[in-house]
């Protein structure tokens, strides 16, 4: 046998191969052994992770920064005026306001004002003296801003929106009362009052009321309020409207039922006159009969 022949024969020995299914199963077994080992988190695993983190250090660092920012913004939502994270919360609120259409700006500002009031009540409840002054200032500033945006929103004619705004203002009133009951003293007492006396608000309230079915008495009140608005007496008009339309249902019924019983002085005088006239008439008839 020559060298070439021998080499050719040796190459034929390549046909010796392992069984295919054994090859496949062995690979599966070997790779599975890794999972069994990795059940416990060892030092080697920790090193592996560190190596991966180091490999993608820029991606990981930016990811961590984003996560930290998200976390801070999330935490800041529970912060109160005077806290370190409060400025972040204001920033997020301002950024949200950018996406709100101009038409809904007044409602948003009122919403912010009621949130500030909630903060103030929370501060008053926890009796945190550090947060109290900033909370009052924040609330007053937010109400001021809401009043300004209400003044600007002159085109607001949608009765639903008017109703919502009226509700928000009512909520603010109630909240202010609650805050006062907890011992909060406002430097400017007229904050919410100023909001109530807003011309646009009163006008819108009247236009909303006009769309409703009203009793005769309510219509009279509405006409009186319109007269007051022409005289630029907005606060008086609002007082009148709120007095009439915020009455509880029972009161209205009582008034309706008691109409016959309640007699004014004038009516009494007229009745007395009538009685006198009748008496006079009767005496004259009697005199004639006697004649």
């Amino acid at each position: 046998m020559t060298e070439k022949e021998l080499i050719a024969k040796l190459k034929e020995l390549r046909q010796i191969k392992p069984k295919e299914n054994w090859v496949f199963l062995t690979k599966q077994e070997i790779l599975k052994s890794r999972d069994q080992v990795s059940e416990g988190f060892g030092f080697g695993e920790a090193l592996d992770w560190l190596r991966v983190i180091f490999q993608y250090k820029y991606a990981f660092s930016s990811l961590i920064v984003i996560l930290v920012l998200f976390g801070l913004f999330g935490f800041s939502q529970n912060s109160l005026p005077g806290d370190y994270l409060y400025s972040l919360r204001k920033l997020s609120e301002k950024s949200q306001a950018v996406f709100i259409p101009e038409k809904e700006q007044s409602r948003h500002d009122l919403n912010i004002a009621s949130r500030r009031l909630e903060d103030l009540v929370r501060v008053a409840e926890t009796k945190s003296s550090k947060n109290l002054a900033p909370a009052i200032n924040e609330f007053q500033a937010s109400v001021q801003k809401a009043a300004e945006s209400l003044a600007k929103a002159e085109t607001e004619k949608d009765p639903k929106v008017v109703q919502e705004i009226a509700l928000e203002i009512k909520k603010l009133e109630q909240g202010t009362e609650q805050a006062k009951s907890l011992g909060v003293v406002f430097e400017k007492e007229e904050v919410v009052e100023g909001l109530k006396q807003n011309r646009v608000y009163v006008e819108n309230l009247i236009s909303d009321l006009k769309t409703r079915i009203l009793t005769e008495e309510q219509e009279e009140v509405l006409n009186t309020a319109e007269g007051l608005i022409e005289q630029k007496k907005y606060s008086e008009a609002l007082e009148l409207l709120l007095k009439e339309f915020n009455k509880p249902a029972d009161d209205v019924e009582l008034e309706e039922g008691g109409e016959e019983e309640e007699i004014t002085e004038e009516e009494e005088a007229i009745e007395e006159d009538d009685k006198d006239d009748e008496k006079e008439g009767e005496t004259e008839d009697a005199k004639e009969e006697l004649r």
Binding site: K17, P18, T26, K27, I30, L31
Partner: peptide, 24 residues
């Protein structure tokens, strides 16, 4: 399958026949 497993799988497929024959 992670990166190490993929790499090892390639090595396994390329050399299993040779190593088996060598031992055999």
């Amino acid at each position: 399958m992670n990166k190490a497993q993929k790499l090892f799988s390639q090595i396994y497929d390329n050399h299993i026949d040779r190593i088996y024959r060598f031992i055999f």
